[in-house]
Amino acid sequence: MASSRPEGFQRVSAALLARAHPHPPRWLEVSARSAQEAADALGVALGQIAKSVVFRRKLDDAAVLVIASGDKRVDERKLESLTGKLGRADADYVKARTGFSIGGVSPLGFAPEADGVPPRLFIDRELFRFDAIWAAAGHPNGVFLMSPDQLVALTGAPVVDVMQP
């Protein structure tokens, strides 16, 4: 029953429903805190996992979220050319700025932050290697299916090249 699911999962479910996304979130019986765990649980390639990588912009303490292909690593210097200097985001910062715990950060359905500013989003162009990708749905056990184009439509985020070679 969806109402018995954690609040973050419910927020993502509501956000997907409001956007008429054709694929409701799926609850996994195993935790998928890492991209590898998610890929194993779903039986898909690691690159098909749209992992969320959160950074802390030094200029104004804003959250920067990259939705990255699970088999790639973010090149912080490339990302900084778009955002300015970045620092690491610890678990408390991620929870405070997104409303999600690490391992369940979704590209949508953020909790309202104290300053009312959602994270600045970027989408890794490497996700477009795949027809179908999976993202976290607000909890380490929650995921949802989409195409890379649907991810762009759902978030309005720009597609960028910020991955390491």
Rank of each mutant, 00 (worst) to 15 (best):
Val143Asn: 01
Ala153Ile: 05
Arg77Ile: 01
Gly103Trp: 00
Ala63Asp: 06
Met163Glu: 06
Thr98Arg: 00
Ala20Phe: 11
Ala41Val: 12
Ala137His: 07
Val94Ala: 14
Phe122Met: 12
Ala39Asn: 06
Val117Leu: 12
Ser81Asp: 01
Val53Leu: 15
Ser34Phe: 08
Gly8Val: 12
Gly138Asp: 12
Leu154His: 04
Pro165Tyr: 06
Thr83Met: 13
Ala136Leu: 05
Ala14Ser: 14
Gly142Tyr: 01
Arg97Ser: 07
Ala20Tyr: 07
Leu145Ile: 00
Val30Pro: 00
Gly142Asp: 05
Ser34Pro: 04
Ala41Glu: 07
Ala89Asn: 07
Lys85Asp: 07
Val12Trp: 01
Phe55Val: 02
Phe122His: 09
Leu127Pro: 05
Ser69Trp: 03
Gly109Ala: 13
Trp27Gly: 12
Leu145Gly: 00
Ser101Arg: 09
Asp92Gly: 15
Asp61Tyr: 00
Ser13Gln: 11
Val143Leu: 08
Lys95Pro: 02
Met1Asp: 11
Tyr93His: 11
Leu59Ile: 11
Val12Thr: 04
Pro165Gly: 14
Arg19Ile: 06
Gln36Thr: 10
Gly87Ala: 14
Ser147His: 05
Val53Pro: 06
Asp71Arg: 01
Gly99Tyr: 08
Thr155Trp: 06
Phe130Tyr: 15
Pro25Leu: 10
Val117Trp: 09
Gly70Lys: 02
Asp60Thr: 07
Thr98Asp: 07
Ala18Lys: 13
Ala132Phe: 05
Gly156His: 03
Arg73Leu: 14
Lys78Tyr: 01
Pro165Leu: 08
Ala153Met: 09
Ala18Pro: 12
Ser4Ile: 13
Lys51Ala: 09
Ser106Val: 13
Val44Cys: 13
Val159Pro: 01
Ser147Phe: 03
Arg11Cys: 03
Glu80Ala: 14
Ala111Trp: 01
Val105Gly: 04
Thr155Ala: 11
Ala45Arg: 14
Val64Thr: 08
Gly47Tyr: 11
Gly116Ile: 10
Asp161Leu: 02
Asp90Gly: 12
Ala15Gly: 09
Met1Thr: 11
Ala153Val: 06
Ala136Trp: 03
Ala20Asp: 15
His139Lys: 03
His139Ile: 04
Gln48Leu: 10
Arg26Leu: 14
Lys78His: 02
Ala15Gln: 08
Pro148Ala: 05
Ile49Phe: 11
Val64Ile: 15
Ser31Ile: 02
Arg33Thr: 09
Glu126Asp: 15
Ala136Lys: 07
Leu16Val: 10
Gln48Tyr: 04
Asp75Pro: 03
Pro107Asn: 08
Thr155Ser: 09
Pro22Gly: 13
Glu113Ala: 15
Glu29Cys: 05
Gly70Ala: 02
Leu59Cys: 08
Arg77Trp: 01
Leu17Pro: 00
Leu127Ala: 14
Leu16Thr: 13
Phe55Thr: 00
Asp92Ser: 15
Gly156Trp: 00
Glu29Asn: 13
Pro119Trp: 12
Lys72Asn: 03
Arg97Tyr: 01
Ala45Glu: 15
Pro148Trp: 06
His23Ile: 00
Asp60Met: 05
His21Pro: 04
Leu86Phe: 01
Leu16Ile: 13
Leu28Thr: 04
Glu113Met: 11
Pro22Trp: 10
Asp75Thr: 00
Phe130Met: 11
Val143Glu: 04
Thr98Glu: 03
Ala35Pro: 10
Arg120Asp: 09
Ile133Tyr: 01
Ala50Trp: 03
Ala38Gly: 15
Ile49Trp: 03
Phe128Val: 10
Val64Gln: 06
Leu28Arg: 04
Asp149Leu: 10
Asp131Lys: 14
